[in-house]
Structures are given as structure tokens and as C-alpha cells.
Design a protein around this nucleic acid. Structure first.
Lengths: 135, 135
DNA sequence: TTTCACTTTAGAATAATTATAAACTAGTTT
DNA sequence: AAACTAGTTTATAATTATTCTAAAGTGAAA
């Protein structure tokens, strides 16, 4: 992502550009490559980078606000940490969030035609598809 | 799944068939249909069903032991609860669990050819593919 | 500049899970 | 069948991630 007008980005999504939000937004969005982080790691990085300490709760608030505005997407992975991703292009579980219910899909009811190679030195352990449901 | 020999199942995976394990295994595996649960829901169901109370920690231990033995699989979903699934047929996130690192896959590097219909009254909100990596 | 709804903050609260260490027990050995 | 022991269970404390609360702070409109 190219350097962008942070203030415009915030205002256009009805997020008052406070000092904290601007600082976090700059940190997240003024970079070339996709950036993955947890709230914890973001907090550490921000603490290291600047002198003014932003409260952890504010980081939670802000990250969620950015997510709600579509500037971040959330990815849940094994290990009980929520990861957020500056890449908001659509990623890819039947999971009914209304009822918090899982419904099985037989493996052969999904056919994947094209799949990327694993990164260098890594192998594909397995592939999991989640189809999220709505009413 | 048909009614099975619980003791054999436990012994064959080097799990000493204790009173608690047998009770939990019967509850989980002596059923026709796939069963989804969280540790919390399983605990409630077991408490309701029997008079003898099994410690929550034991339920965690047992469920993890069953998972390690391949009798249960784990599915992580939004909302920070771990769900377990008696359906151990292979399900379908690049996530490198060695480094706890996420690597993006462009949406068009994965093509899904066949996809099931959403259950009655539900719509597909989105589809997410996780490719888990190993070394 | 005054006002006020929106924000931030520290700290308490909650929720899910794991660690601890003492008590218990299945299964083997005497 | 009593003794032994490694594997288990248990209550409770600890940990980790996250959310709540309520007081203090602050953009931005009037």
C-alpha cells in the first residue's frame, strides 16, 4: 500500500482523527507490504517506536474500529490469539455466527482447483475451508 | 458413528480407560451423528447427565488426549472459543504454527470449483481457506 | 471559546485455558 | 491379594487475552 492520506481515511469512515488513531493508522497503513499483527505485538511495536504510551484498551478500541470500517480484517488461528491483517482483500469455515454453531461439510463437497505452493522450506500440512454463514 | 467398543478405542491409543475417560468417551462417541461442542458445553452436558462430577481440568485433559489420539479434531472459530468436533474426517487457513506467522495468499491463487449450498434459511457470507504449514 | 458527544485511560472484571501439586487408581509385580 | 508405581484426577491458583467501567480528556461544531 502506498503512503496515503491518513486523515482522509479516518474521516471518510467517521473516525475522529485523534492523536492515538492517527499514530496507529500511520504505523499500520503507511507501508508497502501487508502487515500481520496481534494486539499484543502491535502494542509492543508502538511502545518501542514512540515516546507517548497508548493504552492497551485504546489499541483494542482502535483496531476494532478499523476493522468495523473495513480497513483491517481479522483472522482467527489456532492458539487462541486474534490476528489482524492489513490486507483486506477477501480471504477465505459452515460457521453460523448467529448461533455459534458449526455445521460439517463433507470433504468431497468442496473441490479446490487451484492452490498456491507452500513458501520456501515449508510444506502444506493441510487445507481448511471455512464458510461463514449469515441469515 | 456406530456404537463402538470404548475400552478398545482407549487402550489402542494408550489411554488408560479411567472412569472419567470412559464416561466422556461414551458420551462423545456412542452417537450416530457428528457432535460439536466446546469444553464448556461438554462440561455442562456431562454435569447434567451424570451424578459424579468430573473436574473441568479433566475434561480439558481428556479432550486434548482424544485429540492427540486422533479421535477428535479441533476447529477454531471467531469468538475465541475452541470447538471440538467428533467428525475427524479431514476438514479444510497459509498459517505457520512453528513461527505463529500468517502469510497472505492472494484470493485468485485459490480457486474453489465446488462448494456446498448454505443450510436452509442461511446464506453464505464468505468463504475462508486456511493452509496450515509444516516444516 | 464554549459545549458536548466521542475518545482515551487505568484499572477492575471476565472468560478461557493451563499449571501445580497433592490425592487417587489401573494395572503390573510380588 | 497386598504392594507398588506410573499415569490420572482434582481443586485451586495462575495466566493470558480481552472487555468493561467510569472518570478525565479532546476534536470539531456552534
Amino acid at each position: 500500500m502506498k503512503k496515503i492520506d491518513i486523515l482522509k481515511k479516518l474521516r471518510s469512515s467517521n473516525l475522529r482523527p485523534t492523536k492515538q488513531r492517527v499514530e496507529i493508522a500511520k504505523f499500520l497503513f503507511e507501508r508497502e507490504k501487508t502487515f500481520h499483527f496481534t494486539v499484543e505485538s502491535l502494542n509492543k511495536l508502538l511502545t518501542k517506536k514512540s515516546t507517548s504510551k497508548i493504552a492497551l484498551a485504546t489499541i483494542y478500541n482502535t483496531v476494532h474500529a478499523f476493522k468495523a470500517a473495513g480497513h483491517l480484517s481479522e483472522v482467527e488461528v489456532r492458539g487462541n490469539k486474534s490476528y489482524f491483517d492489513t490486507n483486506v482483500s477477501n480471504h477465505h469455515h459452515f460457521y453460523d455466527s448467529e448461533t455459534a454453531e458449526l455445521i460439517d461439510i463433507n470433504a468431497n463437497d468442496i473441490v479446490i482447483q487451484k492452490i498456491p505452493k507452500a513458501p520456501n522450506g515449508k510444506k502444506i500440512k493441510n487445507v481448511e475451508v471455512f464458510i461463514n454463514l449469515k441469515n
